[in-house]
Design a protein around this nucleic acid. Sequence first.
DNA 1: CGGCATCCGTCATGATACTG
DNA 2: CAGTATCATGACGGATGCCG
Lengths: 213, 213
Amino acid sequence: MERSGRCYHQFCGLARALDRVGERWTLLMVRELLLGPRRYKDFMAALPGLTSNLLAKRLKQLEADGILERVALEDGSGEAYALSELGAALEPVVMELGRWGSQFLTAPGPDDHVDPGPAMVSMKRRYKGGAALRVQLEVDGRPFVLGLEEDYLRVEGRRTDVADLRLRTSFAGLRKWWFMGARARDLIAAGELELEGERRDLRSFVRAFERLA
Amino acid sequence: MERSGRCYHQFCGLARALDRVGERWTLLMVRELLLGPRRYKDFMAALPGLTSNLLAKRLKQLEADGILERVALEDGSGEAYALSELGAALEPVVMELGRWGSQFLTAPGPDDHVDPGPAMVSMKRRYKGGAALRVQLEVDGRPFVLGLEEDYLRVEGRRTDVADLRLRTSFAGLRKWWFMGARARDLIAAGELELEGERRDLRSFVRAFERLA
DNA sequence: CGGCATCCGTCATGATACTG
DNA sequence: CAGTATCATGACGGATGCCG
């Protein structure tokens, strides 16, 4: 394959990988796509600082490299981008980098853009399995579908009508629970977490994230 | 911490990681350091295209970030750079990227720089354990010490006097065995692999790399 | 010669505006 | 909304110089 940009020209798997996904913004775009098909504006919203021209260029290159593909949205509202099989195989890469970088996640810096997407990815990474539950989680109005399966957490950044449990919170609330270990019941009592569904399902949900990878 | 260069400014582990090791050449430098302490000239030799000024800059930044540290060489021949604990924790990142990128490693391209270092890293990654052997491997004159342990392969890019087995080959020979599945005995018969030590140890060595991760 | 620093040209990226 | 076009800037590649 003829690579477009500059390459490392080394007979090395790492170099070959970086030739394809080593440029600025690329892996963050892949991270976004781990939450399901994403549209142009979704990238623009999730990746502040990424400019339109560069996004278009990256999308084109990633499509040419077979890492993502254009797909029609289920609801018929135009096109979007989704990971191909090759691109989906980047999940362990994103996860390991995220795991390593998480040690620098103390508090959001003053200039930091906060977004629930990365937190969802970290939940996906740390989920140890053992539950079976479908949860609709809404963070600051952004919907996510969490599919807790036997040994895998499926996360999709979309809205659904079918869910055992519906949770609504803010990023601050999510952060208190996920990053800082606050108890869900305390957040509910403080009005920072709204619950719709059975307490039994909430307990299953909370328990599934008590012992983490 | 005040990061020097430009950052993504996202509250996200992946972004935090890429802020530190996402720039050009950085992860390739980490890969080199997985083979033990490395000196300035070692980087220059292993990373063609990386210029002296940029190498100095990267080394300084990585040291400031606590990813590597200056160490005195055992043989007293000056200073070198080694991974700190924080930097060593990048091994899974390098491995997952290498694993993903390995699918693009068919044959070395015409412009490709070939180097046994990355192949050693890939051996480290794919080693499944179960052996106990100390091997001195020399590829095109470059020495490596392979420490096959119960569940870990230690690889160091240096020479040693203590080894159960000594192997000498060329990169072409290494590639035939490691990447293309040629049998060691055939390489020996063809004069592409020189052996010093007991055949029993060679069998252990070969067998340890027959079932791979 | 190893270990850098400096200068300069080029290209990748960032900022902004514009278009279908 | 989904890009394209244009321009400015800074990162990077290449050459060279300095110093022990």
